[in-house]
């Protein structure tokens, strides 16, 4: 292929890459908006008004009110903010564990590699939710325990992806040649491995995040998550259960839908970022 290069000015029309980028940006903006809006909503979320109990959605209360007359929109926003914060913390810690293990396995190989592989298989073989519940229980509940429990159970899949990629890099001809030029393990990890893993790492972290949010909600729903006083989405859903039969559908449906939308948006960011980060991707 001839190496003639000419930079073409991209047009907005018919440019899939630009549209993807715009879509990612919009998703990120909405997610960020939820986090920002959740801050001021925290007060309103805890304000009780016994005259406005169990109202359906209306102009004054878009998402209705609960049994204590608290505005559900405010509670949902505050809950999403809490979920997002827990999700980010858990995803980042989890991805950190994955990266460390994958690099150790690839750089040292042999026994270390086998040990990491064994550990990944072990964690993948155990039922996810049971492990999560046991960990959260053992760590004593509360927000910190949820972050720790989610972080400690979500690293295996990403570790597996990163380890595969790292192995591929380490067995390549260019790493063999760098070794032959007298460079040590640290140099190869820094100069070769880091660059090749960065893209996978970023995307993997973003994609871990929706998982982490959903599992946080699940734990809170089961009563092992964040402090019941805090309005996390899981707690909102758990509370709403008792009132569903009384016809208060808005208590469960609207916060649940919001969680779904946020998770979907984050997922969009993650999967599109993968295509954007690859410099030679053909189709985007």
């Amino acid at each position: 292929m001839t190496a003639v290069r000419e930079v073409v000015a991209p047009t907005w029309f018919g440019d899939r890459r630009r549209r993807t980028l715009a879509w990612v940006g919009l998703s990120a903006l909405v997610v960020l908006g939820v986090v920002v809006a959740g801050g001021p909503a925290a007060d309103a979320a805890q304000t009780t008004s016994l005259t406005d109990r169990n109202l359906g959605p209306s102009a004054a209360h878009w998402f209705g009110t609960d049994r204590l007359g608290r505005d559900m929109l405010a509670r949902t926003l505050a809950g999403l903010r809490l979920s997002l914060v827990v999700g980010v913390a858990a995803a980042v810690v989890s991805a950190g564990i994955a990266l460390t293990l994958a690099c150790l396995a690839a750089v040292f190989g042999g026994v270390v590699d086998r040990a990491v592989g064994w550990l990944v298989d072990l964690f993948l073989a155990l039922p996810h939710l049971v492990l999560l519940i046991l960990l959260a229980f053992a760590l004593g509940g509360g927000t910190g325990a949820v972050v720790a429990a989610v972080a400690l159970t979500h690293w295996p899949t990403l570790t597996r992806v990163l380890r595969g990629r790292a192995r591929e890099v380490m067995s390549s001809d260019y790493v063999a040649i760098s070794r032959q030029l007298g460079h040590g393990r640290g140099w190869i990890a820094r100069r070769h491995l880091a660059g090749h893993l960065a893209g996978h790492f970023v995307v993997g972290t973003v994609l871990l995040f929706p998982h982490a949010i959903l599992h946080e909600a699940a734990l809170s729903f089961l009563g092992l998550g964040v402090d019941p006083g805090e309005p996390s989405i899981g707690i909102l859903l758990a509370e709403s259960m008792r009132y569903l039969t009384a016809g208060a559908w808005w208590l469960a449906v609207l916060p649940g839908l919001c969680l779904l939308v946020v998770v979907k948006l984050v997922d969009t960011i993650g999967s599109n970022a993968r295509a954007l980060l690859d410099p030679r991707s053909h189709h985007l």
Partner: peptide, 14 residues
């Protein structure tokens, strides 16, 4: 030192 058949494999593409 070794010079291989496929230079593009022997160099980090980044």
């Amino acid at each position: 030192q070794l010079v291989l058949q496929q230079p593009e494999r022997a160099m980090d593409p980044r």
